[in-house]
């Protein structure tokens, strides 16, 4: 079972590396959205650094949403999802492998470029570690909760937009606690608020590790019959 899991994960990683267009596009989208913000609200540095954590998180959520339809859609279309559902691996673990692959190919690259974009928004360098830590703790939840939306809309025409609408409300806790952690750090107080929201963020992510695969597998079973 572990071999099947690893094989599926490696297959997804290999596909992402060779086909391109997935994680790279998300990073590019992230960059463009963040670059548009100062154009919209003006180049006032004080204002930018004030809203930087929130803007970075919102842009990250949108970038992650855009790539959700790649989670199951291609596999559904070419029939490999049917094959996977009949294989040795339970659908829950298939969903785990898929979500993990999604995080490694989109979530992680987004977190890596976030500090560079933070510079564009005049985010204080001192708050970078906290922001990075919060993003590392929070982005897996985006992939695992997103898997539910992707699985629900698999095989649906224009499913990408619908998946975004379904999943966005579930992303709200990640956004709130993520921004909370980053803002507490950028405001400079070494206090409870930052640590607290980081812990909550971790809790949300751990919860999504359970809810995401179970929900996604149930949705896939409904859609694959």
């Amino acid at each position: 079972m572990r071999r099947a899991f690893l094989a599926l994960l490696l297959r997804d990683l290999r596909l992402a590396a060779r086909l391109g267009g997935g994680g790279g596009m998300a990073v590019f989208f992230f960059l463009v959205v963040v670059a548009i913000v100062p154009l919209g609200i003006g180049p006032d540095k004080a204002l930018l650094s004030l809203i930087a954590p929130g803007m970075l998180w919102v842009a990250l959520l949108l970038a992650a949403l855009l790539t959700l339809d790649r989670l199951f859609q291609a596999d559904f279309e070419d029939g490999s999802l049917d094959l996977l559902s009949m294989g040795a691996l339970p659908l829950e673990l298939v969903a785990v492998a898929k979500a993990l692959g999604h995080w490694l190919t989109t979530g992680l690259p987004l977190v890596v470029v976030a500090p560079v974009l933070g510079l564009l928004l005049n985010l204080p360098v001192a708050s970078f570690p906290a922001l990075l830590l919060a993003m590392l703790a929070g982005t897996p939840a985006l992939s695992f909760l997103g898997a539910i939306g992707a699985a629900l809309t698999v095989g649906v025409r224009r499913g990408g937009l619908l998946a975004s609408l379904l999943v966005l409300p579930f992303y709200i806790p990640v956004l709130i606690f993520g921004v909370g952690a980053a803002e507490a750090a950028s405001a400079g107080f070494e206090g409870d608020a930052g640590v607290q929201s980081l812990l909550f963020l971790g809790a949300v992510t751990l919860g999504s590790f359970v809810l995401g695969p179970v929900g996604a597998a149930a949705a896939l079973r409904a859609n694959l019959r």
């Binding site: 539910i148 629900l152 579930f170 809810l211 949705a219 859609n223």
Partner: peptide, 12 residues
């Protein structure tokens, strides 16, 4: 599918 969504929503 809708039932799965409603339950996931109820948990969330």
């Amino acid at each position: 599918a809708a039932a799965v969504l409603a339950l996931v929503g109820a948990v969330n």
